[in-house]
């Protein structure tokens, strides 16, 4: 244990593992927290949009053999654009109705899982690695596919930050998140804002799914774990808080990596949930959230 703490190679490996875990966690959680922050919708079907992103990536990259860059750009769009129909059909009825949204979207999640199961099958599909090699840097091993995941996540996070902070639509979204009625009276078209926020959230979820599917595997049930993670991350960071999602993702990824390596898998899970319970008792609005 002590020898592990002082071994720079192992510490380096823990940091790399933690970064790669965090980057996917953050992507999944961002869209989830965006939907909650603006529309007060708890999207239980979030993992299923990630699952569809995984399948889109599977078809574009593994089946149709598109170049990887094209596939990773197109896969989220291939999910988010048709998802606008679901927004019209299902989601819009649940805006600003938190409890109804939980039950309604849990239903949607089940419908999506079993539609996927009927369309494909339950087999886990493997998306061939686009970047299979490893780099060695000062004794630390850097798997290239993980580095790419970290890079894509960082780019997406950067683009998302730019959208929210430096564009008019981002400003309008933040205004709507603060108080939807006042935003409306100021001339903001909330229906349009909702649709844009939904589109961006699904885009991020599907991107996370595409990356997740390539690093792990694609199956109709693959969305369960990302949803589970999104919950912890978002509760840690604060429901609706975007910097909170980033911070929560980093904390969870690094906790899993450090505790998993030092104390084993059970302790890592125990600590993550223990932290969530403590947080809910003493600071229910999360690390960077705002008390209601």
């Amino acid at each position: 244990m002590l020898s592990m703490l002082t071994n720079p190679t192992i510490l380096g490996q823990i940091v790399v593992n933690g970064m790669s875990l965090s980057s996917i966690y953050i992507l999944v959680a961002l869209g989830f927290t965006l939907l909650f922050g603006i529309m007060r919708v708890v999207n239980f079907a979030h993992g299923e949009f990630a699952m569809l992103g995984g399948f889109a990536m599977y078809y574009l990259y593994a089946v149709f053999s598109l170049p990887w860059v094209a596939a990773i750009l197109l896969a989220p769009l291939a999910v988010a654009i048709p998802a606008l129909f679901l927004e019209w059909l299902v989601f819009r009825w649940f805006y600003q109705k938190m409890f109804q949204s939980m039950i309604g979207l849990l239903g949607l999640s089940i419908v999506m899982i079993y539609s996927a199961l009927l369309t494909w099958d339950a087999f886990e599909r493997n998306i061939p690695a686009a970047f299979d090699g490893i780099l060695r840097f000062a004794g630390v091993i850097l798997p290239i596919d993980r580095l790419v995941t970290i890079g894509v996540s960082a780019l997406a996070l950067g683009a998302f930050y730019f959208l929210m902070v430096h564009t008019r639509i981002g400003l309008a979204m933040r205004a709507a998140a603060q108080d939807v009625e006042i935003a409306g009276t100021q001339g903001i078209d909330t229906r349009k804002i909702y649709r844009v926020a939904f589109f961006v959230a699904i885009l991020l979820a599907a991107l996370a799914g595409a990356l997740y599917g390539q690093v792990y595997a694609v199956s109709p049930f693959m969305g369960e774990r990302p949803l589970f993670v999104a919950f912890i991350v978002v509760i840690l960071g604060g429901m609706g808080s975007i910097p909170g999602a980033a911070l929560g993702g980093l904390i969870l990824g690094f906790t899993e990596s450090f505790l998993g390596t030092f104390y084993g898998g059970s302790v890592a899970s125990y600590a993550s949930f223990g932290a969530v319970i403590l947080l809910l008792i003493f600071r229910p609005w999360g690390l960077l959230g705002k008390p209601e």
């Binding site: 592990m4 490996q13 875990l21 899993e256 990596s257 390596t261 030092f262 898998g265 890592a268």
Partner: peptide, 13 residues
């Protein structure tokens, strides 16, 4: 769980 890298790092250590 789908991520075993931390545990494998532990075994390697």
């Amino acid at each position: 769980s789908k991520e075993f890298s931390p545990l494998i790092t532990r075994l390697m250590a």
